[in-house]
Design a protein around this nucleic acid. Sequence first.
DNA 1: CTAAAGTTACTTACCAGCAAGTAAGTTAAT
DNA 2: ATTAACTTACTTGCTGGTAAGTAACTTTAG
Lengths: 216, 216
Amino acid sequence: MIHEAPASTPRTRPATQRKRKEILDAAIDIFGNKGYANGTLADIADQVDITHAGVLHHFGSKQNLLLETLAYRDESDVADLDDQHIPDGPELFLHLVRTAVVNSRRAGIVQVYTVLSAESVTDDHPARPFFESRYSTLRGEVADAFRVLCHQEGITEPATINAASASILAVMDGLQLQWLLHPQDIDLAEASEFAIRAIVNAVLRPGPELSAYSRG
Amino acid sequence: MIHEAPASTPRTRPATQRKRKEILDAAIDIFGNKGYANGTLADIADQVDITHAGVLHHFGSKQNLLLETLAYRDESDVADLDDQHIPDGPELFLHLVRTAVVNSRRAGIVQVYTVLSAESVTDDHPARPFFESRYSTLRGEVADAFRVLCHQEGITEPATINAASASILAVMDGLQLQWLLHPQDIDLAEASEFAIRAIVNAVLRPGPELSAYSRG
DNA sequence: CTAAAGTTACTTACCAGCAAGTAAGTTAAT
DNA sequence: ATTAACTTACTTGCTGGTAAGTAACTTTAG
């Protein structure tokens, strides 16, 4: 077995890397605004003043471009983070609220995820594995945060942790969709904070069942 | 002005109405499984054993078929309901939970809404007005239910009602997406009930802020 | 009641446009 | 001199929509 030469391939031409990023940014824009199925390589190519064949030269296929686009977005998100990893414990919940605040200033990014994650459930969609693993990972991280929090508050871990973890990601996604449809009516940051707080508190102190409100 | 003869147009041929419904059912299936942009008239036509031109004969255009498909789904939902209208007051929250239970048995329907609602935020999507008005209406109904509930519980309406209304719809949508991606891992009914309960209780009794958990 | 006339529900055939991908050539940097 | 970064030109396959025809059914006239 041979060591893979790490920097051997002179693919690292500075202008090339720059162009690739340009294309990836354009892809985020187009896939966000038109979807993967409906956005075209020519749309993307136009934005960076090359032809669609030029895009294919860099990324090989449309499908591969999509995958690299998703990976690219993720790594720039991580890069934004101070210390390379998402906070754990109760800090995570505050981090999620901050994320919502940040997101309300970048509709483009929000739209790619909203459109592509939903599109990914369609037949044989190339982005499906990406979103499957993304949600699995995120749910795991949120669940861990809940466990830490319960321990900290001296509460035995309730059975609701899994439902709550999924629910937190769910509200965030669902609010984003409504916000994209009605930017005026929905305050993404405020609503996200309210909902996350509601769910976190419900894990720690369940409160009455819904049926309690229906009979006097 | 002449009275429009109500039964004059013999468009109401029984077999025709049946065929139209067949096509609409097929459209739900195809748009759900492939999206609007990616699903084709030929796909739909195949399922009802006619040609794509036959589908166009009935619906005029692909776009119009989409719109009629969405309307068709809505009216069959209303028809399912005993008394033609969605319950108001606190009963609404229980109704939403029941909806989640029912939905967990019909992935097809869930998938159309999930895929199309997200796709609708893309440029000039024909279904956008449909989903805009749908969410506006639903948020209004949920907000009304909250007002009735607050009055019933003797609480002055808190400022969180709007955020809560959007959040309830949001969790339901978001959970559906995760459930479509991981049917094994997500219990749609259970998680929906948990989240709705959490949000309803948070409106009535806010509980501590998130930051309270981060400093001992 | 029947036959003609008209309408509906399609089919077949076609088109124009687009989209992804390929192949071969051209320019420019290393 | 190579190799990368493209462009131009083309192919292939699909897609929505149209046009024209046909068979079956419905309505109307006599």
